[in-house]
């Protein structure tokens, strides 16, 4: 389930394919991750309101123009978090000692792995939603302040439910973990930007 193409993109290959030697190493690393990853997710549905540009979800109060745009016309949200588990971090650490090449590949393949797992969780939310889902939105996107990471951790009880903890600086551990919310609306929405197109940072190396 790890997306090969995404792995290569994270490694910097945009239009070219890696040579056979690197290809084989990517295969080996992906196989190793697939063997050790432990995918877990947790979700929670909450009603939401918007009042004077303040978004209220459970006991969260969010001030964010970008999230306001994303959640326009929404009446509820699904808060969720997903991780591929702590072993990926050990794989990267071990590789750093023996081969930085493998470490870089694990890093890229791990990023691709969590991304496709999150897509999968997102799909189940779309399938079971009573309404139209908006593209998922995470803390740190646009002006959606990163400190809400603590709210996600608390509301979803992340250490206990899926083993994700936060550092004081709001880094998630295991590193290959994602929190996000999906807005649910009775109205469909057209022209929704997602992925790189929704991001305001135009000078990113990985921009598609």
């Amino acid at each position: 389930m790890i997306d090969r193409k995404e792995t290569e993109r994270y490694l910097g290959y945009m239009k070219v394919r890696p040579d056979a030697q690197i290809d084989a190493r990517i295969d080996a690393c992906i196989a190793q991750i697939e063997k050790t990853m432990d995918c877990r997710s947790v979700k929670r549905y909450e009603p939401m309101t918007i009042e004077d540009e303040t978004i209220r979800i459970a006991d969260m109060e969010i001030h964010s123009q970008s999230l306001l745009r994303n959640l326009k016309d929404c009446t509820s949200v699904c808060l969720f978090a997903a991780t591929i588990g702590p072993e990926i971090d050990r794989l990267i650490r071990r590789a750093e000692i023996v081969s930085m090449t493998d470490a870089a590949i694990y890093q890229a393949a791990g990023a691709a792995a969590i991304e496709s797992y999150v897509d999968q969780v997102n799909q189940t939310i779309i399938a079971e939603a009573d309404g139209y889902c908006r593209p998922r939105f995470s803390c740190g996107y646009g002006d959606f302040d990163l400190h809400h990471q603590r709210d996600f951790a608390r509301l979803l009880n992340l250490p206990k439910t899926i083993g994700v903890t936060l550092t004081d600086t709001l880094l998630m551990q295991p590193s290959k973990s994602v929190t996000a919310l999906v807005g649910i609306s009775p109205k469909p929405s057209h022209c929704i930007l997602q992925g790189c197109e929704a991001c305001s940072r135009t000078d990113c190396t990985y921009r598609r």
């Binding site: 490694l11 690197i22 990517i26 930085m100 870089a104 590949i105």
Partner: peptide
Amino acid sequence: IFLPQLLMAAE
């Protein structure tokens, strides 16, 4: 040349 090759050369 891409990151994996750069690192392999370095190794």
